[in-house]
């Protein structure tokens, strides 16, 4: 039995890949379902858009993510991503276009055809047609159910195990054995706004308050996210809430009537280069530092982790002699 610590996106993806390779797995999480950073994620499978600021490896890791998720969980929506900018910040759009691939530059007519509610609001946008999005909460729950159907054990609030831990996916909590890991606070909103209909993630480029909005269906929208170099927990600040709200208002003024369903904040784990990776420390394999790219990179990293685990278990008898 392989023990995986952490039932966020990293732990559940790792467990899924291990189970699919025929290994018995138990997942232990010291918290409750839904109190980790993954629960607050945007769920954008946006490898081209993320390449604007992420290390190139993130886009490579994310290449198979849309198909991986679509094969395992419901609610993967393949409608691409729209990147827009206010009229006076068109230079930001040009900069973004120059830094990324996988997009088509579209004008007002095409924007209106893709998202009728954005008609007349933006003269120009970048459309990343091959990207997709999912609802992280639906996806994580589906992955957990699927694991249990296949015989894996998932326990929340579990005390630390006495036995051996092979895989550690605890996110920022793993700083006790991963000193290079740092926390980057993120804050988000969940809005209900039946008045505005958008069907794909929209990212607004703004020099001061960049924001993205991800439709969750049924008039629900996730709005994110701040990036603050701190490990301060606690509720969202008024400043952050105001910035997120005014930016989303700039995407569509109809959001003025939105109900604020939820305001959340969490700590993303990140390495100094912001690149997610599998590492070995303290006698375990770690899948950590997913930063802003958990749902995009966890499947590929889970595959790497499983390869390493199989290799080391083959080596163990040899080491013992």
């Amino acid at each position: 039995m392989i023990t995986v610590l952490g039932a966020g996106v990293a732990g559940l993806c790792a467990a899924t890949v291990l189970v699919e390779r025929g290994m018995p797995v138990q997942v232990l999480d010291s918290g409750r379902a839904g109190d980790g950073a993954s629960w607050l994620a945007g769920g954008m499978l946006a490898r081209f858009v993320e390449a604007e600021s992420a290390p190139p490896e993130v886009a490579r890791l994310g290449a198979g993510a849309v198909d991986w998720w679509a094969a395992r969980v419901p609610g993967v929506v393949r409608r691409g991503t729209l990147v827009v900018a206010p009229a006076r910040d068109m230079a930001e759009l040009e900069r973004f276009a120059a830094r990324t691939i996988g997009h088509a530059r579209i004008g007002a007519d095409r924007i209106a055809a893709l998202e009728p509610d954005l008609a007349g609001r933006f003269a120009c946008a970048l459309h990343y047609a091959e990207e997709a999005h999912l609802d992280p909460r639906v996806a994580l729950q589906a992955l957990a159910d699927r694991l249990q159907e296949r015989g894996a054990v998932i326990r929340y609030g579990a005390p630390p195990v006495g036995g051996r831990v092979e895989v550690d996916c605890r996110g920022i909590a793993a700083r006790d054995i991963l000193p290079g890991l740092r926390a980057v606070r993120g804050e988000m909103l969940l809005l209900r706004c039946p008045e505005v209909t958008l069907t794909r993630p929209v990212r607004l480029l703004h020099p001061r308050f960049p924001v993205y909005l991800v439709p969750r269906g049924d008039g629900l929208y996730m709005v994110g996210a701040t990036m603050i170099e701190t490990d301060a927990t606690g509720p969202i600040t008024l400043r952050s809430a105001t910035e997120l709200m005014s930016a989303v208002f700039a995407i569509h003024p109809g959001f003025a009537e939105a109900a604020v369903v939820e305001m959340g904040s969490g700590l993303r784990p990140a390495w100094p280069d912001n690149q997610p990776r599998v590492t070995r420390a303290g006698g375990r394999l770690h899948l950590n530092g997913l930063y802003r790219h958990g749902f995009l990179t966890a499947p590929a990293l889970a595959g790497q982790l499983a390869d390493l685990l199989v290799r080391s278990s083959h080596q163990e008898p040899a080491d013992a002699h």
């Binding site: 700083r175 740092r182 926390a183 170099e229 701190t230 301060a232």
Partner: peptide
């Protein structure tokens, strides 16, 4: 004010 709110830099940014 902004980049290092709360316990400043205890997140690991400050030592860098």
């Amino acid at each position: 004010r902004r980049e290092i709110a709360g316990e400043p830099g205890a997140n690991g940014f400050w030592p860098l």
